[in-house]
Structures are given as C-alpha cells and as structure tokens.
C-alpha cells in the first residue's frame, strides 16, 4: 500500500513532536501531557500493528484451550456451558480481529460462569484452579510483553521477546 502504515504513524509522531507540542503554551499542563501520550501511543502502535491479528489469535487459542481443559474438571452442567461456547466459536475466522475478540468474549463469559459456580454454590476443583492459574500466567506474560512500550511495568527488563509468547 502507498503510503504504508509505518510511514503514516512516523509522520504523526513527527507532527506532534515538532509542530503541535511546541505550540502548546507552557501553562497548559494537561495539553502537554496529552501530546506526550499521543507520541507514546503512536510509538506503541508502530510496534504492535503488524502483529495485532496474530496476538489476538493467540489470545483466542489460549482461552479456547482453557475452556477445553476445564471441561475435564467441572460438573456436567458446567461442561455443557463450556461446550456450547466452544461450539458457537469453533468456526471463528483467524484473520478477523473483531471476530477473534468476539470469540474470546463468548468463551470468557462461559468460563466466568463456571468459575463463579452460581456464586460459590458449585465447587471448583483444585485442578480447575490450577488450569486457570496456568492460563493466567501465560495471559499475563503476553499482555506485559505486548504493552511493555508503556514503560509502566517495573519488571519489563526481564521480559522475553514477543515472538516467544505471541
């Protein structure tokens, strides 16, 4: 495509840095902060956009795997809830980021129901807890790697490359 997305993002950063930010009055603190955040967000988008669909597809696969695993450790009625969500999302287009997100939400809603177990009336086995921990560790790591450009994570120096977790 001409012009390509990287060029346009870089142009936007340059425009904010060299034209917009210097034009903001010294006493306009909020506007200054917003300009800095625009530069920061565009910087993160530059790093992310080429892998965004792959990242969301990875999130979809992970939550789907968790739902499948949980079917082995929960009661019959809860298995049905999970299987219905898995069935509804089985044909999700892996190249459509909105469809992937919708699939994540459908499966996630079913998992939430299982975890809450009718507000604690249904037990949650130790195996189920640990399956969710395993998922949670992977999910948290992926999220921290994906958003490390925000500079907030105090342990970002220990993070692996994106390719290892995507």
């Amino acid at each position: 495509m001409l012009p390509n997305i990287d060029v346009r993002l870089r142009n936007m950063v340059k425009a904010v840095q060299e034209v917009i930010a210097p034009a903001i009055r010294e006493d306009e603190k909020l506007a200054q902060e917003q300009a800095r955040l625009v530069i920061g967000q565009l910087g993160m988008l530059q790093e992310q956009w080429k892998n965004a669909v792959r990242y969301e597809a990875g999130s979809y696969r992970l939550i789907r795997e968790l739902a499948e695993t949980l079917t082995e450790f929960v009661e019959t009625g809860q298995v049905a809830v999970l299987q219905q969500a898995l069935g509804e999302t089985a044909e999700t287009d892996q190249l459509d980021i909105d469809a992937l997100n919708a699939g994540i939400c459908t499966i996630g809603d079913a998992i939430d129901k299982v975890i809450l177990g009718d507000d604690g009336k249904l037990p949650l086995s130790r195996e189920a807890w640990h399956a969710i921990f395993d998922y949670g560790e992977k999910d948290a790591l992926r999220s921290r790697v994906w958003f490390q450009g925000n500079g907030i994570d105090p342990d970002r120096g220990d993070l692996p490359p994106l390719e290892e977790v995507i």
């Binding site: 902060e33 967000q41 807890w129 790591l141």
Partner: peptide
C-alpha cells in the same frame, strides 16, 4: 476528558494479572 490516560493505564493490566496469579498460587 483524558481517555488516553485511561487506555495507557489499562495497558498495565498484565502486571496485576501476574501479581494475582502469583499471590493465589501460593494458596491453592
């Protein structure tokens, strides 16, 4: 009025998810 700040902070969610998982794993 400053949604950029909200999405910026929202992008730190993984830090809390890691913390929750670490804290709960000690217990179960």
């Amino acid at each position: 009025h400053q949604e950029q700040v909200l999405t910026w902070l929202g992008s730190a969610g993984g830090v809390f998810l890691r913390q929750i998982t670490m804290l709960l794993r000690e217990e179960i």
